[in-house]
Write a protein that binds this DNA or RNA. Structure first.
Length: 403
DNA sequence: GTCAATTCACATGAAAGAGACCACGGTCTAGTG
DNA sequence: CTAGACCGTGGTCTCTTTCATGTGAATTGACGA
């Protein structure tokens, strides 16, 4: 991995000999040496997790913050430091297990989360086919075979809880009572600030022994971050005046998402490069902003299952025909017609209702539940795709559905 | 005109089924010594 | 005798159906002024 990134570095600097010096610095998997404006948070995390150095159990920690506020990065930084320190001190009674609950393949269900944990302990467990309790006890056996401390980092727990239910966290927090030798501390990381509120009180009290909030970056802080990275990423004098400020301003509007800011800068660079410009200009940022939005949407649409695409196609057709609002019933009728034409199986209205709700979540449509009095209750739906995306999306759907 | 009851067209929830996937253990078969 | 092929059983996982319940305001119809 590390070798590969080095090779990338070389290739990047030779092949595109104009703007980028090292594009990897701007990519989302890059781990910077320095995390600006997060000193307080990092210190807090460090002081909370410090007892592990003496082999004590730490309080469970819960970290909130919107995407791109450096939560994962900061926690990982502290943990790396701890591991290093532990190694210096010469004991190996500490293990850190990190699971990202958002990654579908890795951890979409209780079973898979535990399976992933076991895998990280160098154990092997089949991807499916075993009873969940069995996997649980296997995990407990594995960590309880000697006296040791386990730090369990659950990234994006809110996703897992939404998918599974909160009693799996409860089980995890309760695990200590079953363990004779080992001790487990849990670090939960969540994007949602309200996540804790609708949690079982038992879970809340045990998981939230310590809480830490990562506030969004403001535009100035984002500028610092961007400046630092841009220096490594680009050759000298490739940034036009105000480019960084603009990136920062745009990203600050998106709840201070640093990852977004870096993406903007990188994509802007790529666009400028493709245009054979020797400088990144302000207009490239705008183009990048649009492109990111557009690519994201199109990618989502493309990778959606057939039934979802059929529903979206129905919505788009209605959107063209009708100038008035669209309602669930209209969509279902249109959808049925299209299914018959394309010889697809017709799902029930109940299901379509859920699919529509999911499109709403994705931001492709905007659905509002309204009551039309005697005409019943329904969703009022608006397509939220910009005109240039719409055309492209239509092509994708036509292609995917053989229309 | 006013007020409460009614009613529509879905929303929203819970539970359960279908079918794909997989592990495990047992049985069968063919190849080996 | 043993390795591998081939079941049957029992588990998970995702998508879906079925059944049940909820809901907000336009409409209705009774009522009184």
């Amino acid at each position: 991995m590390e070798q590969e990134s080095k090779i990338d570095k070389i290739f990047n600097s030779f092949v595109n000999n104009n703007l980028f010096k090292d594009k990897t610095v701007l990519q989302s998997n890059h781990t910077p040496d320095n995390i600006p404006h997060r000193d307080i948070q990092i210190e807090s995390v460090a002081s909370i997790l410090a007892p592990t150095l003496r082999g004590e159990k730490t309080s469970n920690l819960f970290v909130y913050g919107k995407t791109g506020t450096g939560k994962t990065l900061s926690v990982q930084r502290v943990i790396n430091k701890i591991m290093k320190k532990i190694k210096e001190m010469g004991n190996d009674n500490l293990k850190v297990l990190y699971v990202n609950c958002k990654l579908k393949k890795v951890a979409n269900t209780e079973y898979r989360i535990i399976a992933e944990l076991i895998k990280q302990l160098k154990g092997s467990i089949p991807a499916t086919g075993l009873p969940t309790n069995f996997v649980y006890s296997r995990f407990i056996d594995m960590i309880d075979d000697k006296k040791q401390n386990i730090i369990l980092v659950l990234d994006e727990v809110d996703q897992a809880v939404k998918k599974i239910s909160d009693n799996f966290i409860y089980t995890l927090t309760r695990m200590n009572t079953e363990l004779k030798n080992a001790q487990v501390s849990i670090v939960g990381i969540s994007n949602s600030l309200t996540f804790m509120d609708n949690l079982d009180p038992r879970v809340r009290s045990s998981l939230g022994e310590e809480e830490l909030v990562f506030p969004p970056y403001n535009a100035l802080q984002l500028q610092d971050i961007l400046n630092e990275r841009a220096e490594k990423a680009f050759r000298e004098n490739t940034l036009e005046e105000g480019v960084i400020a603009k990136c920062a301003a745009l990203a600050a509007r998106e709840h201070g998402d640093a990852r977004r800011a870096l993406d903007l800068l990188r994509v802007a660079g790529e666009i400028a490069e493709r245009e054979k410009n020797d400088k990144i200009k302000l207009q490239h940022i705008d183009a990048a902003n649009q492109k990111i939005e557009r690519d994201k949407m199109l990618y989502i649409i493309e990778s959606e299952p057939t039934q979802f695409q059929l529903v979206l196609w129905s919505i788009m057709r209605l959107n063209e025909k009708e100038t008035k609002s669209i309602f669930t019933g209209d969509i279902y009728n249109e959808y049925q017609k299209i299914c018959e034409k394309t010889k697809n199986e017709i799902l029930t209205q109940r299901r379509i209702s859920d699919i529509i709700a999911e499109f709403d979540m994705l931001g492709i449509i905007n659905a509002r539940v309204i009551s039309k009095g005697r005409q019943g209750r329904t969703r009022e739906i608006k397509l939220m795709l910009a005109a240039n995306i719409k055309e492209k999306a239509k092509d994708i759907l036509k292609d995917a559905l053989n229309l």
